[in-house]
């Protein structure tokens, strides 16, 4: 490679903020690469794509991606993104955040965004713990896993994320492990072209905390382990997608249906009810 040659991902990153803060062996950066790849393939006008993150390790993604980018409060990326999108419906709005942020503190917002079929792409990096604060138990932590606030092992039931999303009304749901790079890219690309609430869950090692505490080896080992212990079952019944500690992870695209979005419903309903006095919003 000549010295001038740039990595194509540089076009999508704030290179003046690199190096990033993520640990070596962490999967978040890999998901960002897939995201950049999907953006490039999408041929979207990147000036019209905005990214919103909450708080946590994945919460830092917005800071590194060269789009209009918003680092918000813990758990509130989805309602913030809802305002951004409804404030200017021509934007494509992506929420990029972690499992604790979206399903713990932000769980209520997630279920309501799904219920409304809000036109948002939600990319959730699931590393099974609250990593930024030191590896505490999360709503996604598998039973028996050891966490810093579950030092004798986790005894709570974790969320089955795709099942939750489907039940609440999400219209695109996929799950991959981080080494499924091409599939992650494809899913993000499909989600960018999908109208409605899309959720992509990406299972990612947290090498410094979750892996070390549970003696699961280094980042590379765990990346491979998740990948090799996955099975792809597109269209699988989401009720069967629980993740148990170090057991098989079912991946694939589970839901991809068309349904009017929040804005579609509002415009259709008010046009029908109010007639010509109503001017459809954002079209």
């Amino acid at each position: 490679m000549s010295p001038e040659a740039k990595n194509p991902i540089e076009n999508f990153l704030r290179m003046d903020r690199i190096p990033h803060i993520w640990c070596s062996g962490c999967g978040i950066g890999t998901v960002v690469s897939s995201f950049a790849d999907a953006l490039e393939k999408s041929r979207l006008d990147l000036d019209k794509v905005a990214i919103v993150s909450g708080i946590g390790c994945t919460g830092r993604v917005a800071g590194y991606v060269k789009l209009d980018s918003f680092h918000t409060t813990h758990g509130r990326a989805i309602p913030f993104a809802t305002g951004l999108k409804l404030g200017n419906p021509e934007l494509k709005v992506v929420v990029f955040s972690g499992d604790g942020d979206i399903f713990g503190i932000g769980g209520n917002h997630f279920i309501h965004a799904c219920r409304r079929n809000m036109d948002l792409v939600v990319i959730c990096v699931n590393n099974f713990n609250y990593a930024m604060t030191g590896g505490q138990v999360a709503p996604t932590s598998p039973e028996k896993a050891n966490l810093s606030t579950a030092p004798y092992g986790n005894f709570e039931y974790p969320f089955n994320v795709p099942y939750l999303a489907e039940a609440c009304g999400a219209t695109y749901v996929a799950r991959w492990t981080v080494l499924h790079m091409r599939q992650v890219t494809t899913s993000i690309l499909e989600a960018l072209n999908h109208k409605g609430l899309s959720l992509i869950e990406v299972i990612t090692p947290c090498v410094t905390l979750y892996a070390r505490r549970n003696r699961l080896g280094d980042g590379l080992n765990l990346l491979k382990y998740y990948y090799e212990n996955s099975e792809v079952r597109h269209g699988a019944d989401t009720r069967t997608l629980d993740i148990r500690f170090q057991e098989k992870i079912t991946c694939g695209k589970f839901i991809d249906v068309e349904k009017p979005t929040f804005l579609d419903c509002m415009n259709t309903h008010l046009t029908k009810t109010l007639g010509e006095k109503f001017r459809p919003y954002g079209v």
């Binding site: 919103v52 209009d68 918003f70 918000t72 409060t73 509130r76 309602p79 913030f80 993104a81 809802t82 305002g83 951004l84 999108k85 409804l86 404030g87 917002h109």
Partner: peptide, 8 residues
């Protein structure tokens, strides 16, 4: 949160 987004 939605207000802040919409203001932006």
């Amino acid at each position: 949160a939605a207000l802040i987004g919409a203001s932006w």
